[in-house]
Structure formats: structure tokens, C-alpha cells
Amino acid sequence: MSGGMLTLRAWRDPILVAISLVALWQVLHEIAGDSAVTAPAPTLAHLWEMIGQARFLPHLRETSLAFLQALAIACGGGVLIGVVLGGHKLTGEVAEPILVALYSVPKITLYPVILLLFGLGMPAKVAFGALHGIIPVVLFTMNAVRNVNRTYLRAGRAMRLTPAQTGWYVLVPATLPEIFSGLRIGFSLTLLGTMLGELFASQRGLGFLLMTAIDLHDVKTILSIAVLISIFAIAANAALLAIDKHLHRGAAPEVSGKP
């Protein structure tokens, strides 16, 4: 197999996905008409034009800033909490059901509480985004730390590693793949949370633009922004997924039989 064929194959799927999505969009447009779904070409042109406009940039910056801060908190805090919960068995057992329950309730209902605590604006959005993203990071990290094979640690002791060496050469490589999977999911959920936060009681940001576009019945803008966010999300996820797969390359293949 030549390298050319390999790259072709690697790109085939994403390209096919993109083409079929645009096709699906066009079909929806044909069915629903301009008042419900605008056609791909004019919408993308509109998006391009919008990005070029000066009044669009502050909104984009607001959303990006909120997202990045939320992401930093979700990842940093999540890994930290996860390590503690994973390392200390009882604490982990106490916290896990609470986290799982919190993961599966509609967190949007907590948004007013956050708004009351942080006030309208950036801090509330950051807190809400981080609230969404942090739970999977904590859960994955906790499990990664919990499931470190004790034999690795014993092997480390047998090789007379210092605690720092054990941490760096044993614990980090042993837990990193799982933690990274958590970070990837945390990334998506933080984005979801940030957007959700902006859709309600917000005065700036892409979510705010979406909600004003509803009032104006401006389908083209709604679609443009939704597409912009989706492209960003899918591209980032593809990159993270590639890293994730690379990190998991040494892992045992899926078992198809029982032990």
C-alpha cells in the first residue's frame, strides 16, 4: 500500500460526510422552502460575509473567551478532582453516584442559580460551560487512576523507582489514554454548556445572535451560526479523536470472546 493511498483513504470519510451533509441540507431546503431552511450556497456566502463584518467579531470573541476559560476550568479542575477521587477509594465511592446523577439531570435548570450567584455576563457562562464539561473529565480520570494495574506499581518498586519517577514513567502513561478520552468528551460538553448559557438571558456572544435572529425570523443567520459552531465542533473533535486513537494504540483490542 502506498502512502498516497493511505492519505486518500484517511480523507475519504470526512469528505464523504461533508458532501452528504451539504446534500442533505439542500434536500431539506427543497422540501421546506426558503422561509424555513435557506439553501447551502447563499447561507455559506452569508456566513463568510458575516465573519468579515466588524460587529460580528466581539460576539465571536465573547463566545470563544467564555468557552476557553470554561474548558480550562473543566480540564484542569476535572483532572485534579478525578485524581483525588481515584486515588482515595472511599472519597471516590462517596462522590461517584452524585456525579453520575448530576451528569444525567438537565443542568439547564441550575442556570438561574448560577446567574443569581455570578450575575449576568461572562462569569456565569464560564461557570455553566465548566459545569457541563467537568463531570466527564472527573469520571474518566477517576476510573483511569482507579484502574491502574497494581502490578505496574509493584514493578516500579521492584525497579527501585523514586515516587516522581513512578509518577512520570508509570502513572502518567498508564492513565493518559483514558483521561484524554474524558477530556475529549469534556470538550464537547463544555461547548454545549457555553452555547446553552448564551441562548438564555445573554447580551453578547453567538448564542445571543442566534436568539436575536429568531425574533427577526432571520433563518440565514441562524443557520450560518449553527453551521459555524458545528464545523468548529466537528473539526476539533476529529483532531482530538485522532490523538485519542493514537494514545490508545497500545491498548488491548476489543475482546470478542469471554475470558
Partner: peptide, 25 residues
């Protein structure tokens, strides 16, 4: 094969961004 790339990326998309569109439709 045709659908698995869609499925892999699906939960990366913040669906609620499309809610305004659903309301319009």
C-alpha cells in the same frame, strides 16, 4: 460504513444551537 463518521462526530455538535432553527421550521 456510510454512517459511522456521522455517528462518531454526532455528540460533538452542540445540538441546542439548532433549536432556533427547529422553532422557525
Amino acid at each position: 460504513r456510510a454512517f459511522s463518521p456521522f455517528l462518531a462526530a454526532y455528540y460533538a455538535i452542540p445540538h441546542f444551537a439548532f433549536y432556533p432553527l427547529l422553532i422557525v421550521i
